[in-house]
Design a protein around this nucleic acid. Structure first.
Lengths: 336, 336
DNA sequence: TTGTAAGCGTTATCAA
DNA sequence: TTGATAACGCTTACAA
C-alpha cells in the first residue's frame, strides 16, 4: 500500500485557509490566530503532511543537509565523527550524506559533484590517515571542513587530533604508575601520527631524564603481528622493561599476546597502554586495555558547529588540534 | 573565496540560447543541433555549472537519493551494506543518506520523517541484530527494504543472511578436514542467529552421525571472554576435541587465546572456524582465522537493485535469505 | 531545431 | 490576521 502525499495545498484546503496562511501556521510565524493555527495543524496531521524540503530549499537556499566525504573504508574514524556531527546538528534539523570515496580520487570528484548538485549546505572531509591530504580547492560554493586528516592548503580549516599530546598523555600516565623503563612500539614511520605520538612520548620521558626502553622508538607497521614481533625483540634486548606504550590498539593486542606467551604479568610486571580506544580490541583484551581516545565524536561535533556558523559567513583557517583523553582500564596500575 | 553558483539561465544566456534548449542540450536530448549542444556544454563548463537537483526533483518527483536507516552503532554491518548499495546505484546516479538511530525508537521516527521530507526515493532499514524488528508500517510513500534484520511484518520485503546455511558451511568444512569431535561455542541463545547457526551446524553433524563435542552447543555471550571461559570448560570435559566452530570472530579470538594458553596447536590439534569475517579480528589472529562471511555487500547491492526496481512499481514481500561464504585461512587444515 | 510558457511545492512580499 | 502573487531553478509539452 503506497500512500499518496499531501501537499500544503491539500492541507490549506482542508483547513479552509490559503496556502500562505497554512505555511505561516506550520512554521510558527507569529502573525497567525491561534485557532487558525490549530485548525491547520490538525489538518496537517490528519493528512500526514510532510513538507517537501526540496521546494523549501529552492527558496531558502538551504537544504539542511551536509555531506560527509570519507576515504576511510572501514568507517572506523568516520563513524564517530558522523555521530558527533549528527549530535550537534540535532535530530531533525540537518541530515548527513555519507559518501565513501574508498581512497579513489575519481570517485571522490564524483561524490563531490553529486553532493554539490544536491546543494548540501557544507562539507566535512574525513581522510583515511592522519596525514595531510589534497585540498578540495578554494573555489567551492559551500564551506568545507577537513577532519582527522588536515588539508594541505593552510587556508582551509582542518580539525585534527593532537597526537603529540596523546603520546605525552600515555607516557605521563605510565610515569605516574611508577614505571621507568618504558618502551614505545608503534606503526609505520611514514605516518605523521606515528612521529607525533613518538615525539610527545619522548618529550615526556626526557622531562624525567629517561630514554625509551630499548634505546629507540620501535617503528614498524600498524598491525598486531608487528606488535608481537617487536615485543619479542624488546624482551630480548631489554628484559627488565616495565611498561609499553603501543601506537595503536592493534599493536597493543600483539604486545599483550607475547607478554602472555612469555608469562609476564600485565600490569604486574609490565604495564600497557594502547591508542584509539577501539572498543572491540580494547574491551575484550585480557586484561582490558588502558588506551588513548582521540575524542573523534567531539571533533565531529565541533566540525558541525563550525560548519553551521560558517554557512552564509566565512570559515576560519589553519589547523585546530583536539586533545585526546586517557581511558584507564586494567592493563595499567601503580607498581606495587 | 566562496564562489557564486551559475544557474541554467546563466548558461543559456552565455551560450545565446533559451533555457529550454540549454536544458535539452545538457540532458542529451536528441532534438538539439550538435553545434548548439557544444556551445551550451562549453558555457556550462566555463561557468562551472552544476544542476540544482532540488529543482529537478521537484518536477520529476525523483531525488536520486536513498535513505539508509541503521541501528547498528559501530557500523559493522551497515558499512558493508552501504558499500554494496552505493556500488549498485553507481557513483553519481544515487546518493545515500546514512542515519543512525542508535537503537532508539524516537530517534528512528525523527530520522524517518527527516528522510521522507527530503523525499528520498526509497529506504533501506538495517537492524542492530539479526532478529526481526518492528516494521516501519505499510503506509509509507516510498518502498522500504529491510536488510540484515527482517521486519516483523511478513508483507514487507526483508533481505537476510542465511545463518542456518552458514552454520552448515562451517561444520561441513571441518568435516572435510577430517575432524570428528567438533564443538560449537556461540553467543546469546536469545538471538535467532545463534539458534540458526547452531541448527545448521547440528544438522550437518547429524548427517555424519555425530554430536557436538561436549554433548551440547555452548551458548553464552557474543564476547571474547565467553570464548575463553567456554573453551576452558570444553577442554576439561572433552580434552580430545579436534575442532571448534565459534559463533562469531570475537568468540573465536577467545577460543584461540585459551588454546594457545593450553599449548594446543591450531590447526594441528584443534581447527577453528569463526563467523563474520571481521577483518581486524580475523586477519591479525595467529594463525589467521577461517571464518564465514555473511556477504553483506552483496546483500546491500541486491537491496539497492530491488529498491530501484520498486520505485514507481511495487515491491515483493517475505524474507529472502542470502548464503554466506566460507573464507579459509590458516586456522583450519586437514588432519595430518 | 529552437523558444514560450506552464508548473513542481514551497516561502516571502505585499496589499487587503 | 489573512490572501494573492511572485519567485526559486529546472523539465516538458506545445508552438513556432
Amino acid at each position: 500500500m503506497r500512500v499518496e502525499r499531501a501537499t500544503l495545498r491539500d492541507v490549506a484546503r482542508l483547513a479552509g485557509v490559503s496556502v500562505a496562511t497554512a505555511s505561516k501556521a506550520l512554521n510558527g510565524q507569529p502573525q497567525v490566530r491561534a485557532s487558525t493555527r490549530a485548525r491547520v495543524e490538525q489538518a496537517a496531521s490528519q493528512l500526514n503532511f510532510s513538507p517537501n524540503t526540496l521546494a523549501r530549499g529552492l527558496i531558502t537556499q538551504r537544504t539542511g543537509t551536509v555531506g560527509l566525504l570519507t576515504s576511510d573504508l572501514e568507517g572506523r574514524f568516520s563513524i564517530p565523527i558522523l555521530m558527533g556531527a549528527e549530535d550537534a546538528f540535532g535530530t531533525d534539523r540537518t541530515s548527513v550524506f555519507l559518501c565513501d570515496a574508498r581512497g579513489d580520487t575519481i570517485r571522490e570528484r564524483h561524490h563531490l559533484s553529486a553532493l554539490l548538485s544536491r546543494r548540501v549546505d557544507g562539507l566535512i572531509v574525513v581522510g583515511a590517515r592522519p596525514d595531510s591530504r589534497p585540498s578540495l580547492g578554494r573555489d567551492l560554493p559551500v564551506p568545507v571542513i577537513y577532519a582527522y586528516a588536515p588539508s594541505d592548503d593552510p587556508r582551509d580549516l582542518s580539525l585534527v587530533s593532537d597526537n603529540e599530546g596523546g603520546g605525552r598523555l600515555a607516557v605521563d600516565h605510565l610515569i605516574r604508575c611508577g614505571r621507568r623503563r618504558i618502551a614505545h612500539i608503534t606503526g609505520d614511520a611514514s605516518y605523521g601520527a606515528a612521529q607525533d605520538r613518538a615525539r610527545g612520548a619522548q618529550q615526556r620521558l626526557a622531562e624525567e631524564g629517561l630514554e625509551p626502553a630499548g634505546g629507540e622508538v620501535w617503528f614498524g607497521m600498524w598491525s598486531e603481528s608487528w606488535g608481537r614481533g617487536a615485543t619479542r625483540m624488546l624482551l630480548e634486548r631489554c628484559p627488565d622493561v616495565d611498561a609499553v606504550f603501543a601506537g595503536s590498539d592493534e599493536i597493543a593486542r600483539g604486545v599483550l599476546d607475547v607478554l602472555h606467551e612469555q608469562r609476564r604479568d600485565v600490569p604486574g610486571d609490565v604495564a600497557l597502554v594502547g591508542y584509539d580506544n577501539w572498543n572491540i580490541l580494547v574491551a575484550n583484551a585480557r586484561p582490558p586495555l588502558t588506551t588513548v581516545d582521540m575524542n573523534l565524536e567531539q571533533l565531529g561535533r565541533v566540525a558541525a558547529q563550525r560548519l553551521f556558523a560558517a554557512i552564509g559567513g566565512t570559515l576560519g583557517s589553519g589547523i585546530e588540534k583536539f586533545p585526546g583523553k586517557l581511558i584507564t582500564r586494567e592493563s595499567t596500575a601503580p607498581l606495587r
